[in-house]
Simulated scan of single mutants.
Amino acid sequence: MDTKIISCAGEKGGCGKTTMNIILATNLSKSYGKKVVLIDMDDPQYSVFKKRERDLQRVSLGKRDDLELYPVVRSNVGTLDQWIRKYYGIVDYIIIDFPGNLNEEMVQGLLYIEHLFIPFFLDELEIDSTAMFYKTLEANFLNNEDRVLRSLNPFFNRYELVKANKFKAVRNTFERAGMPIMEEVVMDRTVYRERYRNTLYPIPEGKENSEMGIKKFIERVLKISKG
């Protein structure tokens, strides 16, 4: 099996990376029939692993037996390689959720990432951090034959139509600097964080299929990673 290793990650916490990694893992597994493993590198908090436990607690014991669950595993710098080796070649996607800063876990984990998706929104510090993060990875990973990174894909998270002109201005600035932003955006909707951020159930069928729906973003991730 041609395993792809991907991640939504950013240099700062609060950019929505964990929410997006969970949404990607669950929907790639449940809605697109992909074999997935989600590796939680947020040592020692392990927020994704704990989220899976909470999600299961909300389901009756009888219904748990009917759930086909993708694995959510806890890892750190010392165990990441063994998890990669365990699942590589037997799943379609290995998705790694990193801590919210450029620490040792992220640097070591980035050695395995093939396609990185970078969420950010309209905040001056967030924009500056994303640009710096992109350029750092471009210089040290993307343009390095010893690394496996094949693409960097910034995208607007918490996109608001009322601020479309501001988002467009940021997009133009990034593109002039050689940092193209994905056309697909993730809207600023509470449902993404409260309902769709679920490790058991995907986005309901028929929902989020519009041009600005989150399923369009997921489909673009599929296309880029197949690249």
Rank of each mutant, 00 (worst) to 15 (best):
I118Y: 09
L67P: 07
V77M: 03
C8T: 11
G109A: 01
T3E: 08
I214W: 12
K63M: 14
M20C: 11
G178R: 10
L80E: 01
I94M: 04
P180A: 01
L111D: 07
N21R: 08
G100C: 00
E124G: 01
K163F: 07
F98S: 01
V73G: 04
K86I: 03
V77S: 14
K215H: 03
Q82I: 09
F217V: 06
K17E: 04
F156M: 13
E205G: 01
N172Q: 15
I113K: 07
L149Y: 12
D40I: 05
M182K: 15
E194I: 07
Y196G: 11
F120K: 09
V148Y: 03
F49E: 02
L111F: 05
G178N: 06
K17G: 05
I96E: 02
F141W: 12
Y70E: 08
R150A: 07
T18A: 10
A9E: 11
R58V: 03
T173A: 14
F98D: 00
G33R: 12
N143A: 00
I113S: 00
F217D: 06
A131C: 03
S29I: 01
S60E: 12
N101V: 00
S129W: 02
V170G: 11
Y192T: 00
K12S: 02
I90Y: 03
T190N: 12
M187I: 06
P44N: 05
L125T: 10
M187P: 01
E104K: 15
A169W: 05
A169I: 05
W83I: 08
A164G: 00
G78Y: 15
Q82C: 00
V148H: 02
N144V: 02
R193F: 09
P154T: 01
N165H: 10
F141C: 06
V72T: 09
Y88T: 08
Y93W: 04
I127Y: 12
V107G: 00
L38V: 13
K207Y: 15
I95S: 07
R176L: 14
I22R: 10
C15N: 04
L69K: 11
V107H: 02
R64W: 12
Y46M: 04
T79Y: 09
V186T: 08
P44D: 04
I39H: 09
T190L: 12
T26L: 04
L28H: 13
L152M: 10
H115C: 07
P44G: 00
Y32C: 13
N165G: 03
S60P: 08
M106N: 03
L111N: 14
K50L: 09
R58W: 06
E114V: 05
F174P: 13
Y32W: 11
